Amino acid sequence: TFTSIVTTNPDFGGFEFYVEAGQQFDDSAYEEAYGVSVPSAVVEEMNAKAAQLKDGEWLNVSHE
Rank of each mutant, 00 (worst) to 15 (best):
Q23K: 13
I5M: 13
V38C: 05
V38R: 00
M46T: 03
V6M: 06
P39L: 03
D55I: 14
T3A: 08
V61P: 01
A21V: 07
D11Y: 11
P39D: 03
T3G: 06
G13Q: 10
E32L: 15
V19P: 01
W58C: 04
F25A: 03
A29Q: 08
A41V: 10
A48H: 12
V36F: 09
Y18N: 03
Y30C: 03
A41W: 15
F15P: 11
A29E: 06
F15C: 15
E44W: 07
T3W: 14
V38T: 03
F17C: 06
E45R: 07
A48L: 13
K49W: 07
N47Y: 03
P10H: 06
F2R: 00
G13I: 07
A21P: 08
E32D: 10
K49H: 07
L59Q: 01
H63V: 06
T1A: 12
V43W: 06
N60F: 14
H63N: 05
E32G: 08
E32N: 11
S4P: 03
E31K: 13
D26T: 05
D27R: 15
F25T: 00
F12C: 08
T7S: 06
S62W: 15
F17Y: 08
G56W: 04
S62P: 03
Q23G: 14
E31M: 13
A50S: 06
N9H: 10
G35A: 06
Q23A: 12
G56L: 03
A33M: 15
A29D: 05
F15N: 15
A33I: 15
D27V: 15
E16Q: 14
S40N: 09
Q24A: 11
S37H: 14
E31A: 13
A51M: 11
P10T: 03
P39F: 01
A21W: 11
F12G: 05
N47S: 07
Q52G: 09
A48T: 09
S40C: 13
D11P: 06
Q24D: 08
M46C: 05
T8Q: 09
A21T: 05
G14W: 07
S62C: 10
A21G: 04
K54T: 08
S37Q: 12
Y30L: 02
L59Y: 00
D55L: 13
A51E: 08
N60Q: 15
S28G: 11
K54Q: 10
E45G: 05
E32M: 14
E44H: 10
H63D: 03
A50F: 00
P39T: 04
E31Q: 13
S37G: 08
V19Q: 01
W58E: 01
E45V: 08
Q24L: 14
E16H: 15
K49S: 07
M46D: 02
E16V: 08
E31V: 08
D11S: 10
V43D: 02
N60T: 11
H63Y: 13
V6D: 02
V38P: 06
G35F: 05
I5W: 14
L53M: 06
A29V: 07
F2S: 00
S4T: 09
D55T: 14
D26F: 05
A51D: 06
M46N: 02
T8A: 08
E32C: 13
E31D: 04
Q24C: 10
V36Q: 05
L59W: 02
N9P: 01
K54H: 08
E20T: 09
F17D: 00
T8H: 07
Y18S: 03
D55E: 14
F2D: 00
F25M: 07
S4D: 03
T7H: 03
G13C: 15
Y30A: 01
E31N: 09
G14T: 09
M46F: 10
A41R: 12
G35R: 07
Q24W: 12
A41P: 07
K54S: 09
E44S: 10
P39G: 04
T3K: 10
E16A: 14
A33Y: 12
A33F: 13
T3Q: 09
A50K: 01
S40T: 12
A51V: 06
F25R: 00
D27W: 15
A50Y: 00
E45H: 08
S37R: 15
V61R: 02
A50V: 08
K54W: 04
A48M: 13
A21I: 04
Q23T: 12
V6K: 04
E16G: 15
S4V: 09
H63S: 05
Q24M: 14
A51W: 04
L59E: 01
Q52M: 13
Y34C: 07
V38S: 02
V6Y: 03
G14D: 07
N9A: 11
F25S: 01
K54I: 08
S28Y: 11
V6F: 05
Y34H: 09
G22W: 05
N60I: 15
L59I: 03
G56K: 04
S40K: 15
K49I: 13
Q52N: 11
K49D: 04
N9C: 14
K54E: 07
Q23F: 10
N60H: 15
S28R: 15
V61C: 04
F25V: 01
A41G: 09
V61F: 04
L53F: 00
N47Q: 07
F2Y: 08
W58A: 03
P39V: 03
N47D: 05
G35C: 09
V42H: 02
F17R: 01
A29G: 07
S37I: 13
F15Q: 12
Q52D: 09
I5C: 15
Q24H: 10
A51H: 08
E44R: 12
N9I: 08
D26Q: 06
E20H: 11
E32Q: 14
T7M: 07
